[in-house]
Design a protein around this nucleic acid. Structure first.
Lengths: 388, 388
DNA sequence: CGGATTTGGGGTCAAGCGCAACAAATACCG
DNA sequence: CGGTATTTGTTGCGCTTGACCCCAAATCCG
């Protein structure tokens, strides 16, 4: 691999990347704003934009009527024809979407399955959706790659699914499988980590450089870290697995139940049980929790919030983030009393670390994972718009 | 702040920084090796090195007799006259050293005090050492700045010591104080975080990009993180405070004692107590531990190791480092049975996360903090050798 | 002692960005 | 409604800087 950093070509590519990255993240921007944001010269930005246009990555539009003095600046927007295919296999369904580099979702299919999806089946479904879209509604699109959000441990180096407990995948080279089935470059990531990426770039964590994201799923608690504005993968890509932590006990709380790991104690199943639901999606659980006010429910909610607070404190002490984002059932749990959770964290964590901290609920909806998956599919293109 | 990234000037400065950084970290290097390491052209490296020489930052030496075919390549070494002053105030003494950009320690003073050192006193001692050295033994040196390793929470943005529990400093603008006393640019960091930096660059963590460092001090447990090869400060710079974490309990262990925070349970004081020492430095404790084999001592050691293992697991699950480095009394504790600690972590942490993990004992000795402190003093120069 | 090999040195080349002057498009003001 | 101020695109030039090429130097090996 030639190390282009430090050469002129490298500068040029980085500048292209910077410009494309800005319009990708912020949406349409005037060239004037781009010059301000990049710190480059007007003429430089002009030539970079022209090059991106020629590459088919951006389009220039008529200037916005801005009601300001001066010559209006053309607006440069991401070319909506540039797409990635985002995939999220789950136990009961596989969701496949075509996501534009402008953030828009052009197509979306949720394919319910009555059995656990196999890797081959997943790849087939992706390839078939790709074929249908390519010859049908998205005929003039340019599909640059596939991104998969997998509920399990994903080795970053080669896109191997080490272990996905609920899909019962283990040591599955899903990246290679999907690449051969579709012929498209493919990227794979852990679902919760990609949720963190999505919330960081487009959701509750916009503009925040140090963030912890915790997602409560049906089967456990995962998460992702953003440090210095960069997603943290760790040495192999397994970072963010909060669920298996032992959070310790809150001295004020009940000592009985704290022998287990976080996701044993703070769990969707326990909440469903205490409100008397058998199955139920997130809105159903939220509604049931809001309706119920029996002491048993309140106790369980408070117990889980206490344990969650302790786990958050551990993360806050070590990482000193400025924001914690909660998604999934952790969001519904926290929303019952966000203030109490914040107070509990402030009490237990180091005062200095918690004073700049806010806790928020995830802003992106059910498309969060697809957006995150598309992001890693776009990553190469965004990092080096000219490729190779 | 002008954003020079992306301009040619920026490239040049980054290239200078890259070359200087390599000789700083690796010691004397031949120009041929530098071209290989930077990926730049031979002629480019030649001109960069010439510029660094002119700046008085590096010196070129006669080629090493290398016994290899070909024209010998001149060796470029960091100029040993470039120094930083490293300072470490503690409860009973202030250590001040002059550290070369080549890593050598040119001078070192440990000034014992019979009372808690005040910020003003610390600054005075630094200024006086600076004056004596500047007019005496280090007359021809170029002192580029001061770095302080403070045992407490340090706000990164302005070098304010938020709270140093053992020094009883609170909201002390130590950076400004030392800057006015010495007239030198000053950087401040948390002692354990700087220990992590030192071990990462020159010690047990050389070449490791994802590392967790935990330091057991007389008064608590601190630490530092290296993620993607970069020290993690968090939003305000308080990251790495493992001591206040609640590590949870090992189900196999004693549940009684786990209500407290990590540094209550895993502590030097408890070890001293169980071996029957009143005070004692690290070697004394290590010797006493090695000598004693009463059941009480073994039990306490094992108990602390179990709790430490759980705390490490939490960090390993979340950060997926490839290395954990233990310093201070945690090193002596772990050295009693490093294998057992590794096994305990492997058992409790996620299998995938722990399989690429090794646990090591800190390699740098008592100069670790001084090296780390010097590093932040050199940081500006290394990042931009031309300054401003 | 001469050929092979590796590397430094100097001159030239080319690429890319900043800069400045000019042109264009808009708002503001009388 | 027209002139002026303001902002920004456009164009051409120049400067900086790293790459490239060729030759010289230094070492090893036969």
């Amino acid at each position: 691999m030639t190390d282009r950093a430090g050469t002129f070509d490298g500068v040029h590519r980085r500048n292209l990347s910077k410009v494309l990255g800005h319009v990708h993240l912020e949406g349409p921007l005037s060239r004037a704003r781009l010059t301000a944001m990049t710190g480059l010269n007007r003429s430089t930005v002009a030539s970079l934009v022209a090059e991106l246009n020629a590459q088919g990555l951006t389009i220039e539009q008529a200037p916005d009527p801005t009601n300001r003095v001066g010559r209006p600046s053309p607006v440069v927007a991401p070319d909506p024809r540039v797409l990635a295919i985002a995939v999220n296999p789950e136990v009961d369904a596989i969701t496949i979407a075509a996501v534009g580099i402008d953030g828009g979702i052009r197509a979306r299919e949720r394919i319910e399955v009555d059995h656990l999806p196999t890797p081959a089946e997943t790849a087939e479904l992706v390839a078939s959706a790709h074929d249908r879209w390519r010859t049908g509604p998205l005929r003039d699109a340019r599909i640059v790659g596939v991104g998969l959000a997998v509920p399990g441990l994903v080795r970053a180096s080669d896109g191997l699914v080490r272990f996905a407990p609920h899909l019962l995948w283990s040591d599955v080279p899903i990246r290679a499988i999907v690449e051969t089935a579709t012929g498209l470059p493919t990227a794979v990531g852990n679902d919760a980590s990609l949720g963190a990426v999505a919330e960081h770039l487009f959701g509750a964590g916009r503009g925040v450089d140090d963030m912890v994201y915790l997602n409560g799923g049906a089967s456990g608690i995962g998460g992702g870290l953003i440090v210095h504005g960069v997603p943290v993968g760790g040495s192999a890509g397994y970072a963010g697995e909060f669920g298996q932590n032992r959070p310790g006990i809150d001295p004020a709380g009940d000592r009985r139940a704290t022998g287990g790991v976080l996701e044993d104690e703070v769990s969707r199943a326990r909440l469903l049980e205490v409100v008397g639901l058998d199955h139920g999606d997130e809105p159903a659980l939220a509604a049931a929790l809001a309706a119920a006010d029996s002491p048993a429910v309140t106790d369980e909610v408070e117990r889980q919030l206490r344990i969650l607070a302790t786990a958050l404190c551990n993360a806050v002490n070590v990482l000193n983030p400025s924001l914690v984002v909660l998604g999934g059932f952790l969001a519904t749990l926290a929303e019952r009393d966000l203030g109490a959770l914040e107070r509990a964290v402030a009490e237990q964590a180091m005062p200095a670390a918690s004073e700049g901290l806010s806790i928020r609920v995830a802003a992106l909806g059910e498309n969060r994972l697809l957006i995150g998956a598309a992001e890693i599919a776009f990553a190469d293109l965004l990092a080096d718009p000219l490729g190779r």
